[in-house]
Design a binder for these strands. Structure first.
Lengths: 218, 218
DNA sequence: ATTTATTTTTAGACAAAACTAAATATTTTT
DNA sequence: AAAAATATTTAGTTTTGTCTAAAAATAAAT
């Protein structure tokens, strides 16, 4: 058995291993809004339970068992987010907190039935791929941040880096939603802001925003 | 803020107040599978939080605030059970445990949207009435246990006393599902077992079963 | 290569929610 | 009405997961 708290740590280690360099004690403390000493304690415990590789002063990584657990939590999170948006008509910026709770519900039967009920979706409302029953992510799309795209290349919005409500609401307002086709027309030297074309209209977005928008390049 | 554990206690006090005589320490301990001393501790706490009336050696009852909370948990439990059966095709004997977890998810918006998504059902899969948004149960049906019905009266199955999987599976097997019309044909003196008519067929059921089947008499 | 700064760990404390065992109330029986 | 049985509370312990403050290790800067 495992606690919700343990699951949160595993998910955090997973997230930091994917997105950033690695899961150092301080990075985890920051990510989970906790003190570094709490992290050290839990890493020892997770290591004893056989889910995490941990050596003093060297941060943590998931072993195979730990990764399976992390991916099953991620799977649940993304399936519930999809449910909330597709079936209960929540907006994409409203679902994160609720899914943080729902992801800890224990019942494999429930997850599989939910998956079927939703039509076995490949991506969640933020464009993130949903791991399958076997805890695999099969996402063959080439992905970059919009800030790294060369001029005049056509790309498609497929996700966001962080799912903060502020960013999601901004994108919503500009109609920069998942699936939209975009072309970068110009990068302003002054502030690295972008002029882009979308729906045959043009608009400007800041570098900050571009760094947080994921696009498909193939 | 309240914890899941506190919510469990409030729900237990509510259940015991409705079904049985009242919520004594031992009755609660039994209902919650805990030791009496744990109950005493928590009753003090719930009393301090202003949800429960508690006097030493005299058991506990909900005050108005406590009852509102209890009913909101019951509402969530029954809505989620309805979701699991109606939308995810679980059987009625499989949903209790999962709903025990889901009932603690915090988001009033979620509950209201779920309610609408389900078509604002009045009863859950076990026939229990679902409290409305204002935490009211409006159930005008006259209800008795099947064991108390006089001979030759026509009644309708509307629920079960306890939702144990064993009972539910037995009823399922005998096709004694919610909504079925039943007439009690005979009560055997020997063991108080019943011969009943259902779907113009006859069958025998034990007193024990009859004591656990709720029927509508009006 | 020291010194300084940063990161991480250790040690000890605390709150929540359960437990056991003993003490005290209450209820029931004779 | 006293004795016996039952129910409840108290006191002290445990586990989990967090914290603070101090110590130790590592990394960065001079």
């Amino acid at each position: 058995m495992r606690t919700s708290s343990e699951e949160d740590y595993l998910k955090a280690i997973y997230a930091l291993s994917i997105n950033d360099k690695g899961a150092s004690t301080n990075a985890l403390a920051n990510h989970l809004n906790m003190k570094a000493s709490s992290i050290t304690d839990m890493l020892k415990k997770l290591s004893e339970k056989g889910w995490v590789n941990y050596e003093k002063y060297k941060g943590a990584s998931l072993n195979i068992d730990g990764e399976v657990i992390a991916l099953s939590i991620v799977r649940k999170h993304r399936l519930w987010e999809t449910f909330l948006v597709k079936k209960l008509n929540f907006k994409w910026d409203e679902v994160h907190e609720i899914a943080e709770q729902l992801e800890h519900i224990k019942s494999t039967e429930l997850v599989e039935r939910l998956d079927d009920f939703l039509g076995n979706p490949e991506f969640d409302p933020h464009g993130d791929p949903i791991p399958n029953k076997d805890h695999e992510i099969t996402d063959s799309r080439k992905r970059s941040y919009l800030s790294e795209i060369e001029i005049n290349k056509d790309v498609i919005i497929i996700g966001v880096k962080d799912s903060s409500a502020q960013l999601l609401q901004y994108l919503e307002k500009e109609n920069m939603i998942l699936g939209k086709n975009i072309t970068v027309l110009e990068i302003h030297d002054f502030d690295k802001s972008l002029r882009i074309s979308m729906n045959s209209k043009e608009l400007n977005i800041s570098e900050r925003v571009a760094q947080n928008v994921l696009v498909q390049t193939n």
